[in-house]
Amino acid sequence: MSALGAYFKRGITALLDEMTSWQAMMGFPHTARGTFLLVDEGTKLACYRVARARPVHKADGAREALRDGWLNRIVGTHPIELRLAGDGVVVRSLRLPAASRGHIEAIIRHQVEQIMPWPSEKMVYDYDIQESEAARFSGQFDVRIVATSLTAVRSAIEPFQSVGITPVVVGLASDPSDRPSAINLLPGAKAALRLRRRHNALVCLCILAAAGAALLAGAGWSINRAIAETARIEASLASLRGAVEAARKEAETKNDPAMDVARKWDAVPMVLLLEELSRRVPDTTYLTALDVDDRNVRVTGLSTNAADLISLLEGSDMLEAAGFSAPIVRDNDSKLERFEILAHFSEKDRP
């Protein structure tokens, strides 16, 4: 049981990893944007209010004057998106095969220490996928990797935190200000995003499991209902069979002339009827069906001259009142006449 549990746990973990990688490949969930945008322009800070069309410029101020409260009076307690100048930020580009898109997070983690001047524990990094016709035509895609030292980014956001302003996104001033930042260098943001993606994957799995359980429960209910209905029908048939058998036995015990006649017809051995038909029917006639119901004998077949069969059967001591029960038609395949004759057992010499 422990081995099965471990196997199941590994399977769930692998599925969660795949779903998390898929979210990263699709860029989901999107980075939340602050209400205000603060762009570091080197000599000053430019503050914008984020709007649907384009950011609206609100004020400019010096980083050194943050303690005077000029920025607090504008943004209040609203979240801000900070855009850093390029000082101390390293940007690298990679071109990867399209088949590796589903494993991009693992590839970036492996590559970042080799192309950046800081060890992984002393830097923050992020990436965004950049589509281009040239890369797409060659079956590849481009990735922009942005990194800076952990010390540098903490020093950049510490003045804002000291006056009660906490950035929710840290991007680059060189990126377009009218679109949300595709890069977030906020310490811990990447781990939080990965955790959020894994949480989303787990929620999806739970929903799928609940839906599967509901479908199984519905299927089980339908099967049980079908089994119960089958049992009810079988009980009803058994009751009907019992009633029919009781009626038959009751009729047999009565002195009923009709039952006596029926028992006489039942006493005729089928082998005698077949022998009589073989003797009466010519070699140019072929029987395809023989049906006996009480006194009635229905003969179906093919013949070169079906009209002569009536007189042949009427000459039998076993049969009487022979006649065609359907029109004679010519069979296109055999070129013979197809017939259907209805006769009755004769009462002469019956026991």
Rank of each mutant, 00 (worst) to 15 (best):
L94V: 04
P117W: 06
D87P: 00
R154Y: 06
I145C: 04
L96S: 05
G86Q: 14
I145K: 11
I157T: 10
F160V: 03
K122W: 04
I74L: 15
V91Q: 08
A134C: 06
G76V: 03
A98E: 10
S132E: 09
T148Y: 01
L94H: 09
I145D: 00
R92M: 03
T77V: 05
T77F: 09
A85Y: 07
E131I: 02
M116K: 09
S120K: 15
V90A: 12
S93T: 11
S132W: 02
M116V: 02
T77A: 15
I129G: 07
V91S: 03
I115L: 10
L96H: 05
V89A: 05
S149H: 08
S155N: 14
H103M: 05
Q140G: 03
Q161V: 11
D126H: 09
A134S: 07
H110F: 05
R144E: 10
I74Q: 12
S155I: 03
H103N: 14
G88K: 07
S93A: 12
G102T: 12
T148Q: 07
V124K: 09
R144Y: 05
G88V: 06
D128G: 12
P79R: 09
A134N: 08
S155E: 15
P159E: 04
I129V: 10
I157E: 02
P97Q: 08
Y127R: 13
I115F: 01
Q111V: 12
E133I: 01
I145N: 03
S120M: 11
T77S: 14
S132V: 02
V124R: 10
P119R: 15
V146C: 11
Y127F: 15
E81R: 10
R144G: 00
S132D: 03
F137L: 14
V124T: 11
E121G: 11
A106W: 00
I115H: 02
I104E: 02
I104Y: 04
Q114G: 14
Q130S: 03
